[in-house]
């Protein structure tokens, strides 16, 4: 694995400077840390979303390697075609025998959890040799902060507003990482932009494996979350420490917790850092917060069991 010092000397990896991501946005760091682990050139597909818009406005591009965006729901299907073309041309001897490449598909939580789930499931099931990265900021941020199935319960978005009757999103987010793990992929992992070493180690491991790989990487969005851009990494860590976003991986079927939490912080510690949860801290929502905490505790307990960590 490349460490931060080695990576800081690499300016040809992932994204060039000058892209248009917001101050405090996590995805440029995620790309840099993941792409730094690839031993081979990377071909990237990206779903429509903030990342694609912020990095590619014609005639400029921030991408150091070959990159294609075509639509919102098809990042995984597009990378399937690229990886298959590579296989076909390699087999026919139409690519240099020594040429190695990695194939990475990227989507936000909208392009991955929701509209792109079918294409993702198909690509994983067909066992393409690809890495899919979901940069998960828990809502459709590119279109102006609408709820996704990754939005946390109680979270305020523009389509799940904290109203007088309904206090934000009603449902708990779906467990996409477990859904992908159930496809018998070689690697599925949850990471966070707040834990660099863990994130880079997971990318290093994933690039070293042959077959479908999936990384669900958590990153705050200062615009959608109403958070301090200077606190992005701290907030990302807090999500892990409250067990709202546990760090774990399923490599070749083995579940493993990659960050143990000795003293679980209450979810309210996380809520305090963001405007999207402001309403949950009011007395009338105490019962809801209690229910959410219970659900977080239950899921954490289940995860520990699955990872053989006991309770």
């Amino acid at each position: 694995m490349q460490n931060l010092k080695q990576m800081s000397n690499q300016d040809k990896v992932g994204l060039a400077g000058g892209h248009r991501a917001c101050a405090g946005c996590g995805f440029p760091q995620i790309i840099k840390m993941i792409y730094g682990q690839s031993q081979a050139p990377v071909v990237t597909t990206c779903a429509t979303g903030c990342m694609e818009i912020a990095t590619t406005i014609y005639p400029f591009t921030a991408w150091r390697g070959n990159f294609i965006h075509s639509a919102f729901e098809n990042s995984a299907a597009t990378i399937s075609g690229i990886e298959t073309a590579y296989k076909a041309l390699k087999k026919q001897g139409r690519l240099p025998a020594e040429q190695e490449m990695n194939f990475v598909a990227i989507g936000g939580d909208g392009g991955t959890y929701d509209i792109g789930l079918q294409a993702l499931s198909g690509a994983m099931e067909r066992q393409h040799n690809i890495l899919y990265i979901c940069y998960n900021n828990e809502a459709y941020m590119n279109t102006g902060v609408q709820r996704s199935s990754a939005t946390p319960q109680g979270g305020h978005t523009t389509t799940s507003p904290a109203g007088k009757v309904v206090p934000g999103k009603i449902q708990f987010p779906k467990d996409l990482t477990a859904i992908i793990a159930a496809h018998d992929v070689v690697y599925a992992g949850q990471a966070s932009v707040g834990f660099h070493i863990d994130l880079m180690r997971k990318a290093d491991q994933a690039f070293g494996m042959v077959g479908p790989k999936f990384m669900n990487v958590y990153t705050p969005c200062r615009l959608g979350w109403g958070s301090d851009p200077a606190q992005t990494l701290e907030i990302a860590r807090l999500a892990v420490e409250t067990c709202l976003w546990p760090l774990y991986e399923v490599a070749e079927g083995r579940w493993k917790l990659t960050r143990k939490i000795k003293e679980k912080k209450p979810v309210t510690e996380f809520y305090k850092t963001q405007n999207r949860f402001r309403h949950l801290l009011k007395p009338e929502n105490e019962e809801l917060v209690k229910q959410i905490q219970e659900e977080v505790d239950r899921r954490w307990h289940d995860l520990l069991q699955r990872c053989g960590e006991g309770a």
Partner: peptide, 28 residues
């Protein structure tokens, strides 16, 4: 045939995979 056949899960993915493949220099 020498063709690699992708048994996609929908027509939307079929055309998306074709776009990926054709962008990669393969007759598709």
């Amino acid at each position: 045939v020498k063709t690699e056949f992708i048994t996609v899960e929908s027509e939307h993915s079929a055309m998306s995979a074709c776009i990926g493949s054709a962008s990669s220099g393969a007759r598709t």
